[in-house]
């Protein structure tokens, strides 16, 4: 069962929700927390540990100049501009390569060899008997975000309950993270920004056919802007997290509020029950 915690907009508190949710649910059952925000993975801050690391590679071409006919077929095929065929040599631009594998197929002389290229790593921490954290981390400056996200999702795909922290935005990395998930919980805030980004994310999730639930963060009691939208689109609001300077302080310092404070532990536990019920389709 894969449940994604996301937000169209960054900084609305999705990592707060994912970390606390993973923690409280793991007191009752086996939970895997997966950080798919691979450009800026932050779940690990709340769960310090020394992880086992596994390098993630993609396949890229290496030119065997002795065999190359310099016919230009690979350069003409590559729609990403990663291969340039000159009169007597072939240039390869690794940052432009999307690892589609097409060049190997068009080469008439078997002059391209498949070699691995490092794009990032997946870190695994067994935090307790019932809580495992899996973090994807993209190599700095690399653009192959989805390859690392794919590796994280592949690793956790058979786990019973997975809580995934999604990357911000609604483009390729988000889609790679949320495709085929059982439920996506969107964390938003009661501002025009929050509403705008929530509506964009909901549109994308409708295309992907992933069910949606909403959590309102930084609520100050007047959340009509989000409530109106949710009732119009029949989206359940599962929790409201109040705007609270102390809470913000704790969270920013890397404390997990539900570990520190029994009242918050209870609130996230209730949220967890609701989310699991929605994901199972019991609601």
């Amino acid at each position: 069962m894969q449940i994604v915690i996301a937000s169209g907009k960054g900084g609305t508190g999705k990592t707060t929700v994912a970390s606390n949710l993973g923690f409280v649910l793991s007191l009752k059952q086996k939970i895997t927390l997966a950080d798919c925000d691979v450009e800026e993975p932050n779940l690990g801050i709340f769960f310090p540990c020394s992880p086992e690391c596994r390098d993630i590679h993609v396949i890229i071409p290496q030119v065997l100049e002795d065999q190359c006919l310099h016919c230009g077929a690979c350069g003409e095929f590559c729609r990403f501009g990663a291969l340039t065929v000159l009169k007597d040599k072939v240039l390869f631009f690794p940052q432009l390569c999307h690892s589609c594998g097409g060049c190997f197929r068009v080469c008439p002389a078997e002059a391209l060899e498949k070699v691995p290229a490092l794009v990032g790593e997946v870190q695994t921490c067994h935090l307790t008997d019932s809580l495992t954290l899996v973090t994807g981390r993209l190599k700095e400056g690399d653009v192959r975000t989805t390859a690392v996200i794919g590796a994280v999702r592949e690793q956790v795909k058979d786990e019973p309950v997975v809580i995934i922290d999604a990357p911000p935005g609604t483009a390729c990395p988000f889609i790679e993270t949320v495709d085929d998930a059982l439920l996506c919980v969107l964390v938003t805030e009661p501002t025009p920004f929050g509403l705008h980004d929530l509506s964009v994310a909901v549109d994308v999730l409708q295309v992907l056919k992933v069910p949606v639930a909403v959590v309102i963060n930084r609520s100050d009691g007047n959340d009509s802007i989000i409530e109106g939208y949710c009732s119009e689109h029949s989206l359940p609001i599962l929790m409201k997290i109040p705007l609270d300077f102390t809470l913000l302080k704790k969270q920013n310092a890397g404390f997990l509020i539900s570990r520190e404070d029994p009242e918050w532990s209870l609130r996230f536990s209730e949220l967890g029950d609701k989310i699991l019920a929605h994901a199972r389709g019991d609601v």
Binding site: F77, R79, F80, H98, C100, G101, G102, R105, V106, I175, D179, V207, L208
Partner: peptide, 11 residues
């Protein structure tokens, strides 16, 4: 939404 447009399938 998953297609990156590489064209390998056309081959």
């Amino acid at each position: 939404y998953r297609c990156e447009g590489c064209g390998t399938c056309t081959l």
